[in-house]
């Protein structure tokens, strides 16, 4: 299977500061890749580079098309749905309006897709007229994922979906992600602090430290690596 997303020798910059020093990352079509690493290692920067939110050099190819020099809006319209750090929901708009915005770049009525999302996340259906800001953290995360899926993306980019949530909620969210990924045939690029959970679900994994990829391979291989177990899995 050909990879749907390929990063080759990618560098990323904040002003003059180089945050990524040439990394290679791949996501298989229909697969799930997880990026692990400490805070400040460059995981979020990698996601931002994919979505054109930071200046980058090197090759980023999505579904056979180069993403460089494209704006974030164009990349989104090509089928890359990014759920950013801190979820990025529109807190002043209602749940339903948030979902409608997800379908902004798609033609036609969003009604069917919305019904499907309410099927995955029944709690959102109950709250469809409420302002997103009034939702709990877990509900907001669900809304953010649902909004991203409204784009009918080929690649779902998730930045720490477990952040700030109770373990039980995290498990529920990851179960839904796993289910959606199989049913909707969407590939996933995931950044996650909860390494054990992420390695269970993912098929490929990369370990990033200070802007370099220091280890990569199948999720299974990485979770068996003693070094990684000690540093990131804690056993």
């Amino acid at each position: 299977m050909a990879p749907i997303l390929q990063l080759h020798a990618v560098k990323a910059f904040y002003g003059a500061f180089e945050a990524l020093h040439g990394i290679d990352v791949e996501v298989e079509d229909g697969g799930m890749t997880v990026l692990l690493g400490a805070n400040g290692a460059g995981k979020t920067t990698t996601l931002r580079a994919v979505c054109g939110m930071v200046r980058s050099e090197g090759d980023i190819v999505f579904a056979g098309e180069a993403l460089q020099r494209r704006s974030t809006e164009q990349i989104a319209a090509m089928g890359v749905a990014h759920v950013p750090e801190g979820r990025g929901t529109f807190v002043g708009l209602t749940v339903e309006e948030n979902l409608r915005l997800g379908a902004y770049s798609r033609a036609g009525k969003p009604h069917d897709a919305m019904t499907r999302m309410y099927g995955y996340f029944p709690i959102l259906a109950d709250r469809r007229r409420q302002q997103a800001g009034a939702l709990s953290g877990g509900e907001q995360q669900m809304l953010a994922i649902a909004r991203a899926l409204m784009m009918a993306p080929r690649l779902l980019v998730l930045d720490e979906p477990s952040f700030g949530l109770a373990p039980r909620v995290v498990e529920a969210i990851f179960a839904i992600i796993d289910r959606i990924r199989r049913e909707q045939r969407v590939s996933v690029l995931l950044v996650e602090q909860n390494a054990s959970l992420a390695l269970e679900l993912a098929d490929q994994a990369y370990l990033i430290e200070t802007g370099y990829v220091v280890a990569s391979g199948s999720a299974k291989a990485l979770s068996d690596d003693p070094q990684i177990r000690r540093s990131y899995l804690g056993y």
């Binding site: 704006s71 809006e73 989104a76 529109f90 915005l101 902004y104 784009m151």
Partner: peptide
Amino acid sequence: TIGLAMRAAAQNPASARLCGIRV
């Protein structure tokens, strides 16, 4: 849709871009 997109762009430009809205 365009009215909604304008509200979204005013409220959270970064997220609006991620939805494909040309802010």
